[in-house]
């Protein structure tokens, strides 16, 4: 038979009169010992009244409704939109500022990558992610073509 908490100590525990370290020790014991837990319960003046309190009725179909809602596409987080737009703007700024001195191939690679990630963030949900990436890549290609023309016109000038 295992050791149990002394009833006087248990009484102090129930009344909140034990030091914190002792409280933690008793609590860990109660978590594992039904005997002492039952003893402490009998010392608790409110335990019986707690058990007499009514239980709420769980609404029918609530679990089913949660499953149906969870299976729908999650709404796009506003933070994802901000990140995506920020990446696209950064790509455009990179193009304009650093486009001329960098080789066109580097511009295209950086821009496509940024637009790819940015587009994914903007469009968010998995279902439309592929479409978003395609659209972003097309946008990146368009901007890259503009960069090529811009850099060539600079060279010509």
């Amino acid at each position: 038979m295992s050791e149990h908490v002394d009833p006087d100590v248990l009484q102090q525990f129930v009344q909140g009169a034990l030091a914190e370290d002792d409280c933690v020790e008793v609590a860990l014991h109660l978590d594992a010992c039904h005997h002492c837990l039952a003893h402490a319960d009998r010392m608790d003046p409110f335990a019986d009244a707690f058990r007499a309190m009514p239980e709420p009725r769980i609404p029918d179909g609530l679990a089913q409704a949660a499953v149906m809602q969870a299976r729908q596409a999650a709404p796009i987080a506003r933070s994802d939109v901000f990140v995506g737009v920020g990446l696209l703007v950064a790509a455009a700024v990179l193009l304009v500022v650093a486009g001329d001195p960098l080789p066109v191939g580097v511009n295209l690679g950086v821009l496509t990558k940024a637009a790819w990630v940015g587009g994914g963030h903007v469009l968010g949900s998995t279902l439309v992610l592929g479409g978003g990436m395609l659209a972003s890549t097309a946008l990146a290609c368009g901007l890259a073509a503009f960069a090529v023309r811009f850099s060539r016109s600079g060279q010509l000038a």
Partner: peptide
């Protein structure tokens, strides 16, 4: 700590 001398009924708490 003490060791109980008799088994007390457990409550399904």
């Amino acid at each position: 700590m003490y060791t109980p001398t008799t088994e007390e009924p457990l409550l399904a708490l």
